[in-house]
C-alpha cells in the first residue's frame, strides 16, 4: 500500500520533503480509520485519502496565499529552505502577473494589495461594482492558472489546455462542459496534474463523488460510491441495488475497453430528485452505438448485457461515443415518479 500512496503523492507534489509528510499523514489517517473500512477496501480508501490530503494542502496553500496581504507577519521564523521556496513562489507569482493584461493587473492589484473597494474601482473604470467584481473573479481565475504554469515552468502542450484550466479555475460548470474539460483531463497529463489544486478550490460539494477508473477494484469502488450517495436520497433498497448493478455493468466497460476513465455520481434536485451517473472514458469508442444497445450484443466474455441491461435498470440512459476518442454513458434514476 505504501508504494502506491507514495506514487500518488509524488505525482502531485514535486517537493520531496512535503511529499513525505503527506504520505505520513495519509497513512496515519488510514490507520485511524482502518476499523471502519470494509475488508479489501483499504487500498482504494488509501488512494482516495492520499488524493484528498494533497488537495487539502493545495487548498490551504491557496487560501493562505490569497489572504497573505491581510495578515501582519505572524509567521514563525523561517526555515533555511523556506527562503528559497518563497523566492520561487514570488518568481512564479511575478511571472503570472506579467501574463495578465495591464488593465486586469492594475485592477487586481488596486483591489487586493491597495485594498481599493469595487465601488470606487467601478467609478474610475466607468463600470458597475458587480461588473468589476466579476472581472476580478475572472482575473483571479486566470492568475491561478498562470501561477501554476509559471511555478511548474511549463507551457501547455495544446491549445485546449488554457481554456480548460481557466474553466476549472473559475469553477464555471457551464464553461467546463462547453470546453469538454472532463475529457481533456483524461487526455492531457499536464492538465490532469495542474487541475488538482484548481478543482480542490471553492466550496466542497458533498452532493457529488468522482471515482477514477483504471483497474477492477475501481468498479467496486464506483458502485459503492453510487449506492452510498443514492442512499442519502432515501431510495428503496431495491433501487439502490439496481443503481449499483447498473454502475457495475457500465464501469466494467471502462476497465475492459479503455485504459482510463472516470465516473461522476451526482445527486439531482431538478426537475426532481434523483441520481445521475456519468461514466466517461478516453478509449477506442463504440463504432455502432445502436447496435451496442441491441439485446444480445456482446464483444466480450459474459452475457453481453452491459448496455441494454443497465438501461433497463435505470430511468434514463444515453450513450455518446466517438471512435478513437472515447465513450460517455449518462444514466439517471429518479427518486420519485415524474
Amino acid at each position: 500500500m505504501i508504494p502506491i500512496v507514495r506514487r500518488i503523492v509524488a505525482a502531485r507534489v514535486p517537493d520531496r520533503a512535503t511529499a513525505d509528510d503527506l504520505v505520513q499523514e495519509t497513512l496515519a489517517r488510514v490507520l485511524a480509520a482502518v476499523e471502519r473500512i470494509e475488508p479489501g477496501m483499504v487500498e482504494p480508501y488509501a488512494i482516495v485519502t492520499a488524493r484528498n490530503v494533497v488537495a487539502t494542502m493545495w487548498r490551504d496553500q491557496d487560501r493562505q496565499r490569497r489572504h497573505q496581504h491581510r495578515v501582519v507577519d505572524l509567521r514563525p521564523p523561517e526555515l533555511p529552505d523556506e527562503d528559497v521556496l518563497a523566492q520561487e513562489d514570488r518568481h512564479a507569482m511575478a511571472e503570472a502577473l506579467t501574463r495578465l493584461s495591464e488593465r486586469e493587473r492594475d485592477t487586481l492589484l488596486a483591489h487586493e494589495v491597495s485594498g481599493q473597494d469595487t465601488h470606487s474601482l467601478a467609478a474610475e473604470l466607468g463600470s458597475t461594482a458587480g461588473a468589476v467584481a466579476a472581472q476580478l473573479n475572472r482575473t483571479r481565475a486566470r492568475l491561478r492558472v498562470e501561477y501554476l504554469l509559471a511555478a511548474d515552468r511549463v507551457e501547455p502542450p495544446t491549445e485546449r489546455c488554457r481554456p480548460v484550466l481557466l474553466a476549472l479555475s473559475s469553477g464555471d460548470r457551464r464553461r467546463q462542459r462547453e470546453v469538454d474539460a472532463a475529457r481533456h483531463l483524461l487526455e492531457c497529463e499536464l492538465c490532469a496534474r495542474l487541475s488538482e489544486p484548481l478543482m480542490g478550490r471553492g466550496r466542497s460539494r458533498d452532493d457529488e463523488v468522482r471515482v477514477a477508473v483504471r483497474v477492477d477494484a475501481d468498479v467496486v469502488a464506483a458502485r459503492q460510491a453510487a449506492r452510498e450517495l443514492a442512499a442519502r436520497l432515501g431510495f428503496a433498497s431495491t433501487d439502490l441495488t439496481e443503481v449499483a448493478t447498473a454502475v457495475s455493468e457500465i464501469v466494467r466497460n471502462i476497465v475492459r475497453f479503455a485504459d482510463a476513465g472516470e465516473v461522476l455520481v451526482e445527486l439531482l434536485d431538478s426537475p426532481r430528485r434523483g441520481i445521475r451517473i456519468t461514466a466517461r472514458d478516453s478509449g477506442p469508442g463504440i463504432p455502432d452505438v445502436q447496435e451496442a444497445l441491441r439485446e444480445g450484443y456482446s464483444t466480450y466474455r459474459g452475457l453481453g448485457l452491459g448496455l441494454p441491461g443497465a438501461r433497463r435498470l435505470m430511468d434514463e440512459f444515453a450513450v455518446a461515443s466517438e471512435p478513437g476518442r472515447g465513450t460517455t454513458v449518462t444514466m439517471t434514476k429518479w427518486r420519485e415518479a415524474g
Binding site: S237, T238, L240, T241, E242, A244, T245, A246, E249, E295, L303, L305, P308, G309, A310, R312, L313
Partner: peptide, 15 residues
C-alpha cells in the same frame, strides 16, 4: 441471494 439482488438480476436480464 438477497431479495433486492434477485430483483436487479432479473431486471438486468440475466439468465
Amino acid at each position: 441471494i438477497q431479495p433486492e439482488v434477485a430483483i436487479a438480476m432479473v431486471r438486468l436480464g440475466l439468465r
